[in-house]
């Protein structure tokens, strides 16, 4: 007998559900535009977007303009993630572990967190020019927050009894940090890194919008000025897939490093 709360949807396998709903969604999109309910200038057809996406991907893999620009954006976002990870971890650890971090650094971080950092993009361009620098700085500025907050939370969130146990073992500060707090914080750090991966790409893109040079942001801007919304959509889809891939890669690494988080089989004692 099936459980009464099992709805029809609970019994459909996920891939089928996602694939099926996507087909329906695309069909509705195509139908709405074809029927003239929405002007094509506002919303390109699904089919046109697919053609544009094919064009973008073909260009990307043949090493054309899309590739040269994609490479730049990827580099910005990659460096952004790297530095966001390092800075976020170090500042998070300082806040969690030192009085200086807690009393002096933390208030500034809270203020900075509340600030609309995207608005700083033109400032960074003014400071660092049109090259790689302002994009990476923007990406780091947006992306390091989750790493910092999650690292601090993970380091502080140690079980009270485990902490007491380390005290009774006469562990020093460093032993406590490396043998207890750091491993305990790892799942949090990875959660922060996954958020940072997505935010870093957004930061790079925002800086490209206001800073020129090269990058997918420039291609999006150009296509948008020419009312080629299908191309804009194609680039957005490309970037989404990229963000998803980075996210998934970090998750893959996490599952290997933080192996103990997988649900364990707990036998009951006979």
């Amino acid at each position: 007998m099936t459980h009464s709360s099992d709805s029809f949807l609970d019994r459909v396998p996920s891939p089928v559900l996602i694939g099926g709903s996507l087909v329906v969604l695309l069909a509705v999109w195509e139908g709405v535009v074809r029927a003239g309910l929405v002007p094509e200038l506002v919303l390109p057809r699904a089919s046109d977007t697919a053609v544009a996406l094919y064009g973008v991907l073909a260009n990307l893999f043949s090493g054309g303009t899309v590739w040269t620009n994609y490479r730049v954006t990827l580099q910005e976002a990659g460096l952004g993630l790297l530095f966001a990870g390092i800075i976020g971890f170090v500042v998070g650890a300082l806040i969690a572990e030192t009085a200086f971090g807690r009393r002096v650094i933390q208030p500034y971080m809270v203020a900075l967190y509340a600030a609309p950092k995207v608005a700083l993009a033109p400032v960074f361009v003014a400071w660092f020019g049109f090259g790689l620098m302002p994009k990476v700085v923007m990406a780091v500025t947006i992306a390091f927050f989750p790493v910092m907050v999650d690292t601090a939370a993970g380091l502080s969130g140690v079980d009270e009894d485990a902490d007491k146990m380390f005290a009774t073992m006469r562990a020093n500060r460093w032993q406590r940090f490396f043998l207890l707090k750091l491993p305990n914080a790892l799942p949090f750090v990875f959660a922060g890194l996954k958020s940072a991966a997505v935010l870093s790409l957004i930061g790079a893109l925002v800086a490209e919008f206001s800073g020129g040079g090269r990058g997918i942001g420039i291609l999006i801007q150009t296509a948008s000025l020419r009312f080629q919304l299908d191309t804009v959509f194609a680039h957005v889809i490309l970037l989404s897939a990229t963000a998803f891939a980075i996210y998934w890669a970090i998750d893959w690494v996490e599952r290997r490093i933080v192996f103990w988080r997988k649900a364990g089989f707990i036998p009951t004692e006979a």
């Binding site: 009894d161 485990a162 007491k164 146990m165 043998l179 491993p183 933080v258 192996f259 103990w260």
Partner: peptide, 15 residues
């Protein structure tokens, strides 16, 4: 130095 302690929770490190 002479003490060993145990708590209600085993507090084994899962890693």
């Amino acid at each position: 130095q002479q003490i060993g302690m145990m708590f209600q929770k085993a507090t084994l490190l899962p890693w």
